[in-house]
């Protein structure tokens, strides 16, 4: 279609893009501001000098190595687990014939119907009352249960019904010949899965892995809950929020912003590097 006013379109799109980007720029600019420079009138966008002291302060006040380690461990465990379980279950549902397959598939689909908030309370209570863990007795009394361990942060996200659905749909279209050739060569199903199916489904696994990684890194509510039970398990978002809530906001806003920049940066870099895969994932999963 020929456009009569291309400049008008550009104007709208650029204005919208500015509206999207400016809050990020404000975050970065504030993270460089000196004491007394942020939150005072009149508002100034640019800092007087680009000082790195806020970043140093953020790293010291936040115990950044611990937060970073927790975030990395949890995100990695969740991503690996979702990829493995989705690929295994997806392969069984797509390429193996067994009684109950349709029932299991319907079960997987129905798990996507339940919103996460419904599980927040019971999952937390189940973890706290986990028998014989964290000082609990056989009936789950007396101790802190699984909340003593870092697995508590990962548990609700280890398996993902959507991930199983996605890999299964992708595996339906794998050519029979390749799998059959391997079977005739005497390969067991596990070997067929690991040596042939996993490499052949790399695109969908990259997409699923990236979606899972970003979500896990950014997750806030569950991590907040677990770290109120066990402060050693704080992740980056929870730690920065705690800093925000417990310091004098007028004076230390730049330190909080520096912490936010540091916590956002890894995922932002990953997104910029692999955004084609990520955007395809969002298309596949619908809206975020």
């Amino acid at each position: 279609m020929r456009r009569r006013f291309p400049w008008l379109s550009y104007l709208v799109v650029v204005a919208g893009a500015l509206l999207t980007v400016v809050p990020f720029l404000d975050m970065v600019m504030t993270s460089f501001k000196g004491p007394g420079e942020a939150g005072t009138l009149p508002y100034r966008f640019l800092p007087k000098a680009f000082a790195l002291s806020n970043y140093r302060a953020a790293i010291e006040q936040l115990d950044l190595p611990t937060l970073f380690r927790n975030s990395v461990v949890v995100t990695t465990v969740i991503t690996v687990s979702v990829l493995l379980t989705s690929s295994l279950a997806g392969y069984a549902l797509a390429r193996l014939r067994f009684p109950g397959r349709d029932l299991v598939f319907r079960l997987v689909l129905s798990t996507m119907m339940f919103p996460p908030f419904l599980f927040l309370i019971p999952r937390f209570l189940i973890l706290v009352h986990w028998p014989l863990a964290g000082g609990n007795d056989l009936l789950g009394r007396g101790g802190a249960g699984l909340t003593v361990s870092i697995v508590a942060l990962a548990v609700p996200f280890l398996v993902n019904g959507f991930g199983i659905f996605l890999t299964r749909q992708f595996m339906l279209s794998l050519p029979d010949e390749v799998l059959e050739a391997a079977r005739i060569d005497g390969a067991g199903e596990f070997t067929v899965w690991w040596r042939i199916v996993v490499p052949q489904t790399k695109p969908v696994l990259v997409t699923l892995g990236l979606l899972t990684f970003v979500d896990a890194w950014n997750e806030y509510i569950w991590a907040l809950l677990v770290s109120t039970a066990n402060p050693d398990l704080m992740t980056l978002p929870v730690g920065v929020q705690l800093l925000r809530d417990h310091v004098d906001p007028a004076r230390t806003m730049p330190v909080v912003m520096a912490g936010l920049v540091l916590s956002v940066l890894p995922v932002l870099v990953l997104f910029l590097l692999l955004q084609k895969h990520y955007i395809r994932g969002v298309m596949l999963s619908g809206l975020k």
Binding site: A17, M257, L268
Partner: peptide
Amino acid sequence: WRTLYFLPIVTTVVAVGNV
């Protein structure tokens, strides 16, 4: 454009909310 408009989606709610 797509990259720019997508930035908030990959950012943790803690950053979005506080900013």
